[in-house]
Every structure is written in C-alpha cells, then in structure tokens.
C-alpha cells in the first residue's frame, strides 16, 4: 500500500492536498497519525522557549552609531570647509572678473585717486617748502598735467597704453606726495 509522503502531508496541512491524498487519509490510520504528529511537531516548534543573547550588544551598537555620526559630522565639516575654500577661490580668482589689464587699470586709477585726496588735504596744502622743493613740485605737476592731457586723448580701447600712462601718473603723484607732505613736514619740524 502506498502511503502519503511528507510532501503530501505538508500539502494536506496547508489544505492543498491532492484528491488522492485526501481520500487516502480517510482510509489510512498510519497516515492520519503521521499528519497528527506533524501538527504536534509544528506546535512544539512554536512553543520552544525564546532564546536570549548571552551578552548585551547595545553598548557596541550605540558605540558604532555614535562613531558613525562623528564620522559623518567630520566628513560634513571637511566638505563644508572644502566648499568654503572653493567659493573663496572663485571669489579671489573670479573667472567672471574683468581681464587682468582691466583689473590693473582700475587698481592704478584707485591709487591715483587716493593720492589726489592725500594731496588735497589741508595739511598738505599749507606747508612751507624750500625753493628747490617748490621747483620740483612745479616740475612734477607739469608732468602730471601732461599725462592728464594724454589720457584725455586716449581711446578707451587702448587699454595697455592707458595703463602705462596711469602708472606714470601714480609714480609722479607718489613723488609729489613725498615732496609736499613728507619733506614739508620734515621742514616744519
């Protein structure tokens, strides 16, 4: 006589047994007891006591989580610093800024303006100077006036020529400041 296999019994337990298995079960006491034993075994499996870990793993889990958070924070900080450095780099070496000649020209013009302000200050205007220095001042002022005339006639497109003239003007202005402010105050002392 053919009996139910374990596959048949498991299928019967899941209410998926074949017609043959169901019929056989009605007639076979041994297979019924096998099926009953299967039910018992599963019930006992479910009733097995829960096992607990021998040691508490939370401290390790917590340590790993905290370390990971620190790592992330450090990564974030490093990333932020890199980003800040990048932004600063872009600002300093701004690729969208005017070309170098234009930037230099603006810088020289600013220097010249600052020297003009320095020379127009009341303390520079009213100094007592020697005759030799007065002649030098006059010469420098003439040269500066000449350059101003040339600058007035310069085309805006001739950037390099303008830059050179403005540099000469700044150079002369510096000398003028030396004579009218520094030397004059020395004389005053």
């Amino acid at each position: 006589m053919t009996h139910c296999t374990m596959d048949d019994l498991l299928a019967l337990r899941a209410n998926e047994g074949s017609v043959w298995a169901r019929k056989h079960l009605e007639a076979c006491e041994l297979c019924r007891s096998e099926l009953e034993a299967l039910y018992q075994r599963v019930a006992q499996l479910k009733a097995l006591p829960a096992r607990s870990p021998a040691r508490d793993r939370w401290a390790e889990i917590r340590g790993t989580v905290v370390a990971e958070r620190h790592r992330k924070r450090r990564r974030w900080a490093a990333w932020s610093m890199a980003a800040a450095a990048g932004i600063a780099g872009v600002l300093v070496f701004n690729p969208f800024s005017p070309p170098p000649a234009k930037a230099d020209l603006a810088q020289v013009k600013a220097q010249s303006a600052a020297l003009d302000i320095q020379l127009q200050a009341p303390e520079a205007e009213g100094r007592v100077v020697s005759g030799r220095d007065a002649a030098l001042i006059a010469q420098l002022e003439d040269q500066i006036a000449q350059i101003d005339g040339q600058l007035a006639n310069q085309q805006a497109a001739q950037m390099d020529a303008q830059l050179e003239l403005w540099q000469q003007r700044v150079h002369l202005m510096n000398q003028l400041v030396q004579v009218r402010v520094v030397r004059a105050s020395y004389v005053g002392l």
Binding site: H3, T5, L9, L30, C31, E34, A37, Q40, L45, L48
Partner: peptide
C-alpha cells in the same frame, strides 16, 4: 526523502529533543 510512513508514528519528543533535532 521518504517519510517512513507505514511504520508507527514516533512520539514527538520533549523540548530538549526537538531543540537537539533542530
């Protein structure tokens, strides 16, 4: 592969036996 059906079904053991069998 076979269940051994045809012979009497064994008694299902106590917990310890099932633990060991597992």
């Amino acid at each position: 592969e076979t269940t051994g059906a045809g012979s009497p079904a064994p008694l299902v053991g106590v917990n310890l036996d099932l633990e060991r069998a597992l």
